[in-house]
Design a protein around this nucleic acid. Structure first.
Lengths: 217, 217
DNA sequence: ATAATTATCACCCTTTTGTGTGATACATAA
DNA sequence: TTATGTATCACACAAAAGGGTGATAATTAT
């Protein structure tokens, strides 16, 4: 009976925690300009579901079993889906923010954000904004304080770290690297830890992939 | 006092075992058309030494500490050095033969080869031949039984194995892959074992490097 | 001259990998 | 119809990798 239904903001939610999901439902019920078009407890078929429900905004929890929100985000962006995707998590650690931003998240909010604020954030996102909590904003600024901070990271490897990375790409084990460079294996471990931090990865294979894909080596 | 020194075949040897090195010296002393220009116990500075001594042929032991013969071979070829390089080892395992051949070894002989045969092999190599012991020859034939057996290997990955490899390149752990493909982690391990065999590697990082460098993924 | 970076090494403890050795079921090729 | 290849799962064990915390000396930057 209401023609304004056509102007309603369609929201799709990916959230495994039933309590949160429930509170989102209540929250959206109270918002006259929004409607919840679906809720899923993981991002397994995110692409399919987004294509089916055609939401205007997606609220994506990061911490979900099976397929987490970052994966879901990646899936959608890789498929060329341009819907607004607001990530949310209880943690505000650097790594996920970094990942989410790189993968094209529209916004990034913490779960402790009060409901009314979340509604505002959704409207912001719809209007072309990039909603995020102040904590997150600070981190993002740091990430983008310099143009191409991302690439910069890749290039700020010290020469010794580059040596190590080169050997990693050649498939050397820690032990082999230590003998190749005639340094202790502990030193190798130390360099590799630093490399991981700078490349934002946490395994040899990821480091190798990133090194090759970004032609660092 | 002999002008034929200019026609002497200059041989450079990389060999860590002093006994073998000694017997090579004796062997070359007895050969009227060859001279030993240097011996080193590992391939650490192979490139430098080859450039310095300008040998006609290099005898490269595979099993050496610090920097082994395969690494030495790679170094030289990567630097564009086209000198004949005859690899030798006590073992005739597939993997090294495969590696050595791929990296441009001129020949591949076993250490149990009698000295006079080795001299013949060196002359063969100088004359454009590819000296190798029969055992090795058989393996090489197998490796090249089909044109581009190498590439073929890369392409004979089953579709499931390709799935797994793709995820490896994305930095997934076994656990993540198993959940992504909804199969047991044991199955993941099984697929990965097969992938390693086919790609001739034995770690995730090597598999990732090979996959990316050969654009399999 | 004081702070930050770099390169080096150490210890602890958990998780992940790598590898060997099988087994089962199904489909396909010889 | 008997091999062969594929996909699945299991167990056990050793080696490797990852992460935290922290130390020292030399260099470089501010």
């Amino acid at each position: 009976m209401m023609t304004l239904a056509t102007q309603m903001i369609r929201v799709l939610i990916f959230e495994d925690n039933e309590d949160f999901a429930e509170s989102f439902r209540d929250m959206l019920d109270d918002a006259p300009d929004m409607e919840l078009v679906g809720t899923f407890n993981n991002a397994k078929n995110a692409l399919k579901q987004v294509q089916l429900f055609q939401p205007d905004i997606v609220l994506m929890d990061i911490d979900m079993p099976v397929v987490n929100g970052l994966e879901g985000l990646r899936q959608l962006r890789e498929a060329g889906i341009e819907v607004g995707i607001v990530m949310q998590t209880v943690f505000d650690d650097n790594e996920r923010v970094f990942q989410a931003i790189c993968d094209g998240a529209t916004g990034y909010i913490l779960k402790k954000t009060p409901p009314e604020k979340i509604l505002d954030f959704i409207r912001e996102a719809i209007n072309g904004g990039a909603p995020m909590t102040p904590t997150i904003a600070r981190q993002v600024l740091k990430l983008f304080s310099l143009p191409f901070q991302h690439k910069k990271d890749l290039l700020t490897l010290t020469s010794r770290e580059q040596d190590v990375l080169t050997l990693l790409v050649r498939g050397f084990s820690y032990k082999m690297i230590s003998s190749e460079l005639t340094i202790s294996i502990e030193t190798v471990r130390s360099h590799i830890k630093h490399i991981y931090e700078k490349l934002h990865v946490n395994s040899k294979s990821e480091a190798v992939a990133k090194a090759l894909q970004n032609k660092i080596v």
